[in-house]
């Protein structure tokens, strides 16, 4: 089991309000990603759930029990930290065994569980080493091992991959998703990287300045963003905004041609990724637009082009930044 519900959760330091009031229901077994720019309060929200910080007001329930005043050790959650936070004075084996020792589990059972976790995480050869002797990826696997051994009600991940290099990050992402599929436990994952959010999440929670802007599946957020902020945050390259930010159109929903179209512009720069080409275009009064074209497209900078936006994929926003549905 592992349902988590937040009810009017508020966090403030004196006059500085970090989270004005968040409501959220997380279902058992769900993989939820908190995403937003740095300083949006996503890590604070996670730490409130973990119990590492106090709420100013509001209520958190885990499996229906109010844990608002329960210290972190009593909440039955496991956390994987950005800095790995391994115990440097313990071997890998003892690091993974630590939560079990704290739970006063018999030694035989501890050994068995640690060995099993090491098997899963491919850490068998490193069990007697110290964290200082491991690479970043190995340390991250130890941190995950420490989290999975005691079958927590939910996993909390606080930007676990941001200290890894790009190639390793992709591998670990797949690894974590596989692990979640195997274990089926509730997971909350905090990241500032919208690609991680889109690829991993069952549901994404987009945060902006402490507010929950929108909650939904990756495709819902992509197709039907509730606000200018979500529209701009989700999707890569970023959505184009024209007409004083009242109309948005994604780069992949603009067709480009040398001959005819609705909007005229001049190619400034083209980025060739092989499969795609991103064209940065000066569209006069409409400003700078990004357009995604197929990989074979080779518009030289300076070429005059015509663009045709897909009307059905256009997004309309009001003055308050909210989406106007038509």
């Amino acid at each position: 089991m592992g349902t988590i519900s937040l009810n009017k959760v508020r966090k403030a330091f004196g006059d500085a309000v970090i989270i004005p009031g968040a409501d959220l229901e997380i279902k058992n077994g769900e993989f939820v990603v908190f995403v937003g720019p740095s300083g949006c309060g996503k890590s604070t929200l996670l730490r409130l759930i973990a119990g590492l910080e106090d709420m100013t007001s509001g209520e958190i329930k885990i499996d229906g029990n109010d844990v608002t005043d329960t210290p972190p050790s009593g909440r039955g959650l496991a956390m994987v930290f950005q800095s790995y936070a391994l115990y440097p004075h313990m071997t890998v084996r003892n690091n993974i065994a630590f939560p079990l020792k704290m739970a006063k589990m018999p030694q035989a059972e501890i050994d068995q569980k640690v060995n099993h976790a090491a098997q899963t995480l491919n850490l068998n050869d490193y069990l007697e080493r110290r964290p200082g002797q491991l690479s970043g990826g190995q340390r991250q696997r130890v941190a995950i091992g420490r989290a999975i051994v005691r079958n927590p009600k939910a996993f909390l991940f606080d930007e676990p991959l941001s200290n890894l290099d790009a190639a390793l990050r992709v591998n670990m992402r797949i690894f974590i998703m596989q692990l979640h599929k195997d274990l089926g436990s509730t997971s909350i994952y905090v990241t500032h990287d919208q690609v991680e959010a889109m690829t991993m999440a069952d549901r994404i929670v987009v945060l902006n300045k402490g507010h929950i802007e929108q909650v939904g599946s990756p495709l819902e957020l992509y197709n039907k963003p509730d606000s200018l902020f979500v529209a701009g945050f989700i999707g890569s390259p970023k959505m184009n905004f024209v007409e004083n930010d009242t109309i948005g159109i994604r780069p992949e929903h603009i067709e480009i041609s040398e001959k005819r179209g609705e909007w005229q512009g001049k190619v400034l720069l083209s980025e060739h990724l092989g499969s795609d080409t991103f064209l940065h275009i000066d569209a006069g009064a409409r400003g700078r637009l990004t357009v995604r074209a197929s990989g074979e497209n080779t518009f030289a900078p300076g070429t005059n082009v015509w663009m045709t936006p897909d009307k059905s994929r256009m997004h309309y926003f009001g003055k308050d930044g909210r989406t106007i549905r038509k």
Binding site: A50, G51, L52, P71, P72, S73, G74, L77, A78, M79, F81, Q82, S83, A85, L86, Y87, P88, H89, F98, P99, M102, A103, R146, R150, L156
Partner: peptide
């Protein structure tokens, strides 16, 4: 601080946090 927080998440009481994590480190 993260390491002490990790100990807290791992279910360590304050006494264990001080005696098994902080003091040895």
């Amino acid at each position: 601080v993260g390491i002490l927080e990790a100990a807290r998440m791992d279910g360590a009481s304050l006494w264990n946090e001080l005696s098994r994590v902080l003091t040895p480190m």
